[in-house]
Every structure is written in structure tokens, then in C-alpha cells.
Write a protein that binds this DNA or RNA. Structure first.
Lengths: 401, 401
DNA sequence: GCCTTTTAATTAAAATTATTATTAATAGTC
DNA sequence: GACTATTAATAATAATTTTAATTAAAAGGC
């Protein structure tokens, strides 16, 4: 595994290098071109010292002069910013049917994007190779030297132990954790995360959670996921398993969950559950517009779309799920008292239909004082954005954002 | 409000003062007498610089020479430690029937202790005055100059907004928050916290949660409280209301909660609930040893004691509560994946009777992978310890522990 | 008991950093 | 357009900090 100038592997660095890294961090965090006096103020050093370090960084091409700032009276200062062509981070989201990759620069601007068209996540050597080759090919195509890549942030579905980099559901057949394997083959530092937690992080960085350091993100898709950001940091849990909301006992139906128990929320609130709900409704004699269209199996996407087209059965089922979700969520809000709750995942297409039902449910269980300052919102981020979030996680790990 | 040498009010300090504070912090955190080379290593400066700053601190009486260290070969170094008579923190726990105060020094050793014998917490000006006078009298009796007191940490029952220092249930009749009022009258910095969160913090600092930065503390007393420590920090929530576990909808009885809803866990798992359970059991014809003793009203303390004496009715009721608590707790564990769960409060007197029942309940709802690494334990801390915890919160806020 | 080894503490010299003064550049004013 | 006010950048000087060298103090071997 190679290391970038901005290494954070715990090795001892000389003072000047540490100073230089600090300057890069300040420039990156501020995310704007800064003058030497501003930088000196920010890093708490004198202007002459700042000048020498800035000159150093300039000579090594880590930063660039962006011109001069137009001020009022007085000499116009030169402004400096990080050289975006020296700092890249890669994000990779591995879904069940899709793998997406994005490369961003230190400004978090997307500079490259690619996805595997026909992907099927399998716990096999072949699938693993396909992913590694894909990432390698992307890096090659982008033509950025490996030495300019700070790292790869991976969001993968299923359970992940962030501390060790192990993935529990996929690529668990190697002797080393997934993270270590990728680092060995790609020669760049790798951060592995659960996909739902990536969505939570992304929402905090780019979405509606921006500016808040205390949010809950619900990922309502085929499954039901939850991630929490507390004190500005992702809540990972002792073994990295935090966020298992789907197994909360709140259900009333007799469905058996994959965890072996009954009453799990995920068996009654999720895309998967919605399909079952629909089948049950039909068997009870409910009518639906969806049946008129001559299609094979009806997926939960179809049901969501049906609701948007006015199909009453679909609407009823989704509202019932929203209500139940809201009620269960109320207990979580009482526990964590978050600033915002953001609901993401495929279900957002039905918009207020879901949101209002959740709010109705919340009222039943959530304490008024907790509800009072808490906003419940739908996510507006795209899948592509989550991929950028995974890349941003790398920047975050270097304290650059 | 006066300020100690170690101020943390955000005012700009000169470089040498900041350095001195850093040295004090290092010495305090290490909690042992250190040699100059060790200190220099810890603060990452050269030995001559460390020597001058240590000399400075010594002259100002902030630190003391503790003698020499006996080493192997080579000259024996002088060892320095913080002057414990310069740094005091006060802890005050305000309960319903008791108010306790403790003064600790920077080593967290108790140097003074006092409590109000006949106290009754009321939301009145009189009660407030009683408390302020009590604290003032203690400071006076201890004869420590106000300038040597870093602050007062208050743990008060009921809801508290840590960010503003407001108390919602008590002393809410002033124009300024409780915290501000105390600061104005006592002239020392004040930190106000919820009593349950104090117990969580204490457990992490002195109790079984020591060394872990990811624990859940259940406070099972007259009421049911919960506090969480995540990433080494108390989870406060956006408005400081985090931890409302008692209103989780898990109940099966028809009891109305003070929140206006039914099914709240706190109405079925708590000391208060235990008394109701007992009355119900009797009305259904259950027998109990407790009735033989000629006493007036039977409190939940009596029932806990009864269980320890073999009273079957008491045992049954407590086990039923433990089971229910365990089941509800399982969902929280799935969500937060803590390292440890520590059960505190008056209920600990029944020991394994409660703990085993909780474990049985947990098995029903908690995911095996979450349970696997999580220890469920009873607290062994005394009320006095929580008071010290409140004081330690002050030290923590100064980054001294 | 004296010498060697080892580590602490002090001192001296070198390097670094900050403060102050000076010069440079720009905008507005008379 | 020259002058003034203002801020940036640089140079010179002062202060601080570090590195290196020296001295001091202790332990152990012969």
C-alpha cells in the first residue's frame, strides 16, 4: 500500500512536514483561496513563518496561487488554494445489482465517474476480482498517479466491522479482512463501511443534515436501515454493528425474520415487506390498478409507482408502513433526541404520502419536547451522491473536510 | 463569576499561558509525578523548554517537586506533580429527598463531603436558596479560596438542557437558566446535568465502564433512566434530552404515563411500577411475607428487600420487570451496539435476580452478534460516588482527566 | 575505592520563529 | 496627479526554541 504526502498511519513525521500538512488541512477545510495573513491567523503563526511554509508548499506544487484578491484600500494580497490535482479520493458503492465508482478531488468535486452495468453481488472470488479489476481500470483510465490518491472509501451492503475492515455477508472467504485484501491489491489505503452508514454520512455532508452534527437517517429501500450521526461522528458501535433498527420488536404480523425471530420491524416496514403486504392484500380480495398492466412479478418499485398513480391499495399499504415506522421511530427519537431525521431510499418517490404517515405515527410515541425541535424530512440525494459520500469519508479521515 | 488560572471560556490567551495549561493537563491526565524528560516527550518539546516552563509553574506554585525517582543506573531525576491544593472541583447531586456535595482535588480524591439531612426537592425559591446557601457554606467551611475552584458540577433529577443550563422540572421560575443563576450567586463556573447522565459518566470514569468509551447505563430506581456514552462522550442529544427510555412503547398494561400515553416502559418497569404491581398482585389474592410485618405503606424498597428474603410474590414481580426490561433493551443494543451495559439504581440490591431476568429478556430481542461481545453487569457504585462523578465532570470539561 | 556506564540537568551554540520596521501596492481624496 | 490611508510583503532585529555539548549524579564492576 502506497502512502500519500498526507499520511495518517501514525508514523512519526518531522515538524516541518506536520506543519505543511496542517496548512493543507486549513486550506482544504476553509474550502476557499486564502491570503497569507488569513492563513497565519488560522494556524496561529506569524506572517513570516506562514510565508516560508506557503513558499515551500508552492515549490512542491501542493498549493497554487489563484491570483490576487480585490479588496478595498491597501495592497491586494495574493490568494492561495490547494492544488486539486494532487489530492484525490475514490468512492465505491457496492450494491446488490450495481457497483458505482466516483473520484473526487480535495474540493469534493467529482472528476471521474463509472459504474459496472451488469453487476450482481455474490460472495465469490470472481465477483471480488471483478470489483478489484474495475477499480484498477478506473484509476488507470483516470490517469491519476496512485501517489495522488488519498484512499478508497467503500460502501458495501450488509454488515461491516469498521474497526477491522471485515465484511460479514460478502467476501468473507479470505484469510484477511476485505479492507486489507483491497489495500494489498490496489496499493492504496481503504476504508470499508456499511452502505446505510455511508448514506447517513453523505446526508450530513451534502444533504439536508448539513450543518447539524446530530441526525438520524432512515434508509427505506428493499430493507430497512438506520444510521446515526452523533457529536458530528458516525455512530459505529463497539463492533461496528450499530444501527440495527430492522430487528426492533414492533411488529404485529407473524412473519419470520432472517434473524430467526418474529415481530421484527424490518419484516413489516421495508420494500420486501411491501411486496408481501401486496400479495396478502390481493389474497384478501383487494383490487389494484397494478394488476391491469400485464407484467410478471410485481416489485415494491411498482407498488410505490402505483401509489403515485393513485392506486388505493398501494396507498393504503404504504401509509400503514409509514405509520408503523413513525411509531417505532418515536422511541428512537426519545432516546437520541436528534436535530433532524432524514428519510432516504427508494421509498422517497412517494414523497409526502410516506412522510405524513411517519409524522402521524411519531405523534403517538414521541415526546412533544423531543418532537418540537426535530425536523422530519425526505432525502433529496441521488445514488451518485452516496458514492461521492464514500469518497468524502476518505477526506474526512484525513481531517480535510 | 470568577475564573481559575485554567480558564476555558474561549478568551484569547498568550502563548506561554497556553503552554503552561498544556503542561498542567498532561501532568493531571497522567495522574502521576513525572520527570522533565517524560514531560518534554509528552508535550513534544525539547528538554530545555520543558525545564523553563516547569520552573515557571513551580515558582507560581501550580506544581510541586515530589522528590526524586529511584531508577537504575544514571542520575536520578526530580519528579513533579500538580499541586493538588490549587485545583478543586465541586460535585452536587440534587435528589428528591437528599442533596449531597463533594469536593475533589485534581487527582479526583475526595477532600470534603457534606449532605443536607432533611431535604425535600421543591420547585420553590426557598428550596433554591437552601441549596445555594448549602454550597456557599461548604465552600466556606472547606476554606478553599474561590479562585482555586474550577467549577461546580450539578446533577439534578428531571429534564435538563445541558446546552443552555436550563432545568425543566425544577427552578424554572427565574428569568435566567438555573446554571446562570448559580454562577451569578456562587461566582464559580457551573455545569448542570441530568442525574441519570451523571451516573452514566461516573460509571465510565470510576465504575465498570472504565476503559470503555461505548456503554449504556440503566438507572432503575423509582423511575427508569438511561444514559449513553458513545465515542467516549455522554450522548446529550440536540436539546440535551437524550435518554428517554421510559417512554418507549413496550408495555402491555393499561397504565397511564405522566406523558399522557399508555404502554410506556417506565409505567411497567420502575420502582413506582413495582409498587403498583404489588398492589395488583395482592388484589388478585397473592400472598406475601411483607404483609406480616406491621408497617404502613409498602415501598418498592420493601419489595426489593422482600425478594431478598425469599418472598415469592416480590420475586415474581421483579423477575417479570427484568424480563420486560431485557426485551426492550435488546432493541437499544441492536441500535447502539455498546461494549457494556451497566444496570444501576436501587434495584441492584436484588443482584442476580434482576440481572438474570434481564439477560433472559435480552435473548428474545437482541441479535446474537450484538450480544456476543456485550457484557451486562450490575453497578457497584455508591451514591457518594455519583457525587464525585459530578465533580469529575468539571475536570473533564477542562480536559484534566 | 576508583573507574566506567548511564541518565539528568545545565550550558552554549545554532536554528527557528516572532516582532518590529520598512517598503510595496492599491484605492480614495483633494 | 500627487497625497493620504490602508493593507501586503519583505527585511532586519529580537526573542525563543532546539540541538549539541558539557557537567552532574547515581549505579555497578573490578
Amino acid at each position: 500500500m502506497k502512502h500519500h504526502f498526507l499520511k495518517n498511519d501514525g508514523s512519526v513525521l518531522d515538524k516541518r512536514t506536520r506543519q505543511q500538512m496542517e496548512y493543507i488541512r486549513i486550506l482544504s477545510k476553509m474550502n476557499k483561496a486564502m491570503t497569507i495573513p488569513e492563513i497565519a491567523e488560522a494556524v496561529q503563526t506569524s506572517i513570516p513563518t506562514a510565508t516560508t511554509i506557503i513558499t515551500d508548499l508552492l515549490e512542491n506544487n501542493w498549493i497554487l496561487i489563484q491570483g490576487k484578491r480585490e479588496t478595498g484600500p491597501g495592497r491586494n494580497p495574493a490568494i492561495y488554494s490547494v492544488n486539486t490535482e494532487q489530492f484525490y479520493a475514490i468512492g465505491l458503492i457496492i450494491g446488490l445489482k450495481k457497483a458505482q465508482l466516483v473520484i473526487i478531488n480535495i474540493n469534493q468535486s467529482e472528476v471521474y465517474k463509472k459504474s459496472i452495468s451488469d453487476f450482481n453481488l455474490e460472495n465469490t472470488k470472481g465477483c471480488l476480482n471483478q470489483l478489484v479489476d474495475f477499480v484498477s481500470a478506473c484509476i488507470k483510465e483516470f490517469e491519476a498517479s496512485i501517489s495522488k490518491v488519498l484512499g478508497l472509501g467503500v460502501g458495501i451492503t450488509g454488515r461491516v466491522n469498521v474497526h477491522t475492515g471485515e465484511t460479514l455477508n460478502y467476501f468473507n472467504f479470505m484469510e484477511v479482512p476485505f479492507k486489507q485484501y483491497l489495500e494489498a491489491r490496489l496499493k492504496i489505503p481503504v476504508h470499508v463501511e456499511n452502505d446505510t452508514r455511508i448514506t447517513g454520512f453523505t446526508e450530513c455532508e451534502f444533504g439536508k443534515g448539513k450543518g447539524s452534527d446530530n441526525i438520524i437517517l432512515i434508509n427505506l429501500d428493499r430493507g430497512l436501515g438506520l444510521s446515526m450521526v452523533v457529536n458530528g461522528k458516525l455512530l459505529l458501535g463497539n463492533s461496528g454493528f450499530a444501527g440495527e433498527f430492522g430487528h426492533m420488536k414492533f411488529g404485529t404480523k407473524e412473519r419470520l425474520c432472517i434473524c430467526g425471530k418474529k415481530g421484527c420491524l424490518g419484516t413489516e416496514v421495508s420494500g420486501y415487506a411491501l411486496q408481501l403486504d401486496f400479495e396478502e392484500a390481493l389474497s384478501k380480495g383487494c383490487q389494484s390498478l397494478l394488476l391491469k398492466e400485464d407484467q410478471g412479478e410485481i416489485s415494491f418499485f411498482d407498488i410505490l409507482e402505483g401509489a403515485n398513480n393513485g392506486d388505493l391499495t398501494s396507498i393504503d399499504l404504504i401509509q400503514a408502513q409509514g405509520l408503523k415506522l413513525g411509531e417505532a421511530l418515536g422511541s428512537i427519537l426519545n432516546l437520541l433526541n436528534p436535530k433532524d431525521v432524514i428519510v432516504g431510499g427508494s421509498f422517497v418517490v412517494v414523497n409526502d404520502l410516506l412522510l405524513d404517515a411517519i409524522k402521524v405515527g411519531l405523534k403517538k410515541t414521541c415526546l412533544p419536547m423531543v418532537m418540537k425541535e426535530c425536523r422530519i424530512m425526505l432525502s433529496e440525494l441521488s445514488a451518485n451522491m452516496y458514492c461521492r459520500g464514500a469518497a468524502s469519508l476518505v477526506l474526512k479521515s484525513h481531517d480535510l473536510i
